[in-house]
Simulated assay, not measured.
Amino acid sequence: MQYSLRQYRAQAESHSHSDFHQIIISDLGRLELEIEGRGGEVCGRQMAFVEAGRTHAFRAEGLNRFLVLDVDIDLARRTGIEALWQKTAHASAYLEVLAGHQSGLLGLLNGYQDCDVIGLSGRSLNAANDAGNDIVVRLRQILSHSRQVPGGSYSALDGVPARLVRVAAWAETRLGDNISISDMARIAAQSESSLFVAFQRYFGASPMRWLAEQRLQTAWAMLRDADIDLSIGDIANSVGYQDQSAFSRAFSRRFGCAPVLVRSQNPNAADT
Rank of each mutant, 00 (worst) to 15 (best):
E82G: 13
I142E: 11
A83Y: 07
Q11G: 14
E172V: 05
V42E: 02
S180N: 07
L28A: 01
A246E: 00
N266D: 00
V68Q: 01
H21K: 09
V97R: 15
T173A: 07
V197A: 02
L106E: 15
D130L: 02
V68R: 10
R138I: 14
G62R: 00
A91R: 15
V117K: 01
A169I: 06
L75D: 12
V42T: 06
V165C: 11
N110F: 09
S16T: 12
V117L: 11
A198T: 03
N129A: 11
R201Q: 02
E213T: 10
T173M: 07
R215H: 08
H101A: 01
V239Y: 10
Y3P: 05
G104T: 05
S193Y: 09
T173E: 00
G44S: 03
R147A: 14
S193Q: 09
E32F: 14
L67P: 04
S180E: 09
S4K: 00
E213H: 03
G233L: 00
E213Y: 08
G80T: 08
D227T: 15
L98W: 14
L31N: 07
R249Y: 12
H145R: 11
N237R: 14
E61A: 15
Q214C: 09
R59F: 00
G62D: 03
I35P: 01
Q2L: 11
N110V: 01
L84M: 03
Y112V: 12
S121E: 14
